[in-house]
Design a binder for these strands. Structure first.
Lengths: 187, 187
DNA sequence: GTCTATACTTGGATAGAC
DNA sequence: GTCTATCCAAGTATAGAC
């Protein structure tokens, strides 16, 4: 499409591969075919461009996650679907990785985009868990907020462990381990 | 102590704050008081210096974790101690953060140090969980390997979520959520 | 809107004197 | 062992012509 769009797409892909700090204008220009002049015409800074790319990634991620949470079935079915949606374990989570970078934490606009994304996911999980408790599927003494945080954390941590080990079976172990604990918490 | 030691200490602290890629020789020299000549006399490269610093961090971490796992008490007591040991949630895990950097993944010597560290922790957890099962504390149908991965992942993911939210209560929620699930899995 | 040229800083590392 | 000087590539951004 437009040059502006090409820039955003190239940045999306590069940030997904390399994170924010390690993605340079140079690479973005090479990947998009745009020139330096164009880039700084459309965006005032690398950060602004990254922000645009991140927003687009965010929309896409929310659409994917929503699929799992609107599936027919009980709470554990939806949670299982969320945790086992297609993931490239060794690549890590595009959002989780960003937030480990000091540069991203310092760029408040970037950090809060990621924060909002995760907050939204946890909120979805709270709904699913609360429904599971209300329907008598899950134990009434589960705290939905804490349980939701635990589930979301499992996924993020599974990426970290799998990358450290360079072995995606560690990712699967963590996910299955948490799902088994949830099974144990059935009412 | 020695200049060599000062370099390692400075690198340790900086990597803990900024990660690997974002820690420059410049900063290391400023923090350690050493000169460029000294640095490249003692270490052939930034990577070699980082490796030395990482090894030291690793030893320290193992010592801390060992305390939790040698505590008097049942399995859940030890696991709780491990998960609630003093953590600066918003800073993230010094090891987990490293492994999100492409540069670290590419530097095999660094990556495998982190990998070994986590593998060791998971192995400790497997022992604790297996003991809990054997003693009748935990349900016999728990898979120790998967459960261990889930617990280790909770911690790493809790850091990620807390940093994204810039709110350490998310960290606590995730940890407590997982501990509650483990309580539900008592025999 | 886009291009080329330019600017200035930092990163990572080497050379050679002391 | 340590210092200073130097090197070259890359990062991020601006200027000004077209």
């Amino acid at each position: 499409m437009s040059t502006r769009d090409d820039l955003i797409e190239a940045t999306r892909e590069l940030m997904w591969e390399r994170g924010y700090g390690a993605t340079s204008p140079r690479e973005i220009l090479a990947a998009s075919g745009a020139g330096k002049g164009s880039m700084y015409h459309h965006f005032p800074s690398k950060e602004a461009l990254a922000q645009a790319a991140l927003a687009r990634n965010s929309d896409q991620m929310q659409a994917e996650v929503e699929q799992a949470f609107t599936l027919d079935g009980d709470a554990l079915t939806q949670i299982r679907a969320y945790l086992t949606e297609h993931r490239e374990a060794l690549k890590g989570c595009q959002f989780g990785r960003l937030v480990q970078e000091p540069e991203v934490i310092e760029a408040e606009t970037l950090r809060s985009s990621v924060g909002d994304m995760f907050a939204w996911i946890r909120a979805q999980l709270v709904v699913v868990i609360s429904r599971g408790i209300a329907s008598g599927e899950l134990r009434a003494d589960l705290d939905p907020t804490r349980t939701a945080a635990a589930i979301a954390a499992t996924l993020q941590g599974a990426y970290v462990l799998a990358r450290a080990a360079q072995d995606s079976s560690v990712f699967d172990d963590a996910v299955e381990g948490t799902l088994a604990l949830l099974e144990a918490a059935r009412a």
